[in-house]
Design a protein around this nucleic acid. Sequence first.
DNA 1: CATTCCACGGAATATTTATTCCGTCAATAA
DNA 2: TTATTGACGGAATAAATATTCCGTGGAATG
Lengths: 228, 228
Amino acid sequence: MDSRGQIRHIGGGQFSRNQIAMNDQSQKNRRLYRMTERAKTQDETRARIIAATMQLHDEKGVTATSFVDVAKRAGIGAATVYRHFPNMGSLVTACGTHVWEEMAPPTPDQAEELFSGLDRREDRLKRLVDEVYDFYARGSLRLGKAYADREHFPELDQFLLAVETGIQALVRKAVTPAVTSQTTLELVYALTDFAVWTSMQRVSGDEAARRHHLARLIGCALTEPPHP
Amino acid sequence: MDSRGQIRHIGGGQFSRNQIAMNDQSQKNRRLYRMTERAKTQDETRARIIAATMQLHDEKGVTATSFVDVAKRAGIGAATVYRHFPNMGSLVTACGTHVWEEMAPPTPDQAEELFSGLDRREDRLKRLVDEVYDFYARGSLRLGKAYADREHFPELDQFLLAVETGIQALVRKAVTPAVTSQTTLELVYALTDFAVWTSMQRVSGDEAARRHHLARLIGCALTEPPHP
DNA sequence: CATTCCACGGAATATTTATTCCGTCAATAA
DNA sequence: TTATTGACGGAATAAATATTCCGTGGAATG
């Protein structure tokens, strides 16, 4: 990405004029062009675009944000936005990368150590709920926007799928090694997802109380009953 | 509404030219105009507009649907759509009325009889979950669309608020007369909302099993614990 | 320093959507 | 039957967006 001193081509590199010329067989006398100083301002422009876009996404939602909007907000020409991002999808993806870093979702590899030393299921569940709900609280606004427009942008869907994968990995670790059926596991997945968090936020009392409630509910879910 | 033989004015009656003239003091020699035959085709047009709109809402969502879209789909001129509905909000409201009738949400007044004769809490909860989940299943698609664009249309918000009010009334009846705190009640509200239903739908097994799971969770929620 | 390169953005072009005007024609009144 | 009324929709107008072209100026090269 930040390949200072390399041959640069923005927008993923598929559409630089230079790049296109390279593919052309008759590019005999073409001066090699490395970017050093320029790369900086180029990166700045890119960053400004992404910042403006995230701002607009936060305000109006992803679907309601247009290229012109972004250009205005970033204080640059619309054509420049297009050169950096050929379509909204790629812009959304770029924002996704930033957002992912900012909200730092739980990842499967964290799961192992997160529950180390916690033997009692109760403790493990508490840890699980704390971890997941801290995350939801961090990402609240943007997760909400992403879920709202998920069906309109495959990139949002991918993002959320990744988020859900990480959380479900935590759930599995928290619940292991107890013997639980797949269905029960899925029930806990449901209870720990963002939609339920959102619903839970409407319950009065402080955050700690809400987390306690959820942990208790998960405990109930894990108590498998006989089904008729 | 369907006042055949009355003086008609479409679009809620605020902007009929005739109506405007009526307000004018100098409407001395104005022929009285009652509509009989015409009202029929007028109602048909209105119905076609609403049907087209609901179709588009189902396909692309509320926010993504434009007047031009609606006109095309209904096979009429855009101007006609405007005469019937001066803005998207009024069209959304009109659709809401139809949708409300189609999905027939639980209403507070049904609550009383719904639980009559059911003394055991377990039975009451089962009845509650059945009633609410039958409703969610009926309205699934449109409720999802409404929730997705809720923030963009006050009319959708009103609609959903009304839906939620009805369901919460059921919840209260189902839980009464047991002594439960406000917080516990809110917890059950959360568990019975549409978002949780959506999450629950991802749990494998048949629908009956899912309902059983939810009823059990609600039962757990009602078992108030001491909180530290 | 002369030459080459290319990111930037103003401006042109093409669509799509929003909104209004107004003539037509069938329905309605007298 | 004749004059009147108003719903309808084609067409005009306005405005926002999408998308591309191309000239410019400063960076990069040798």
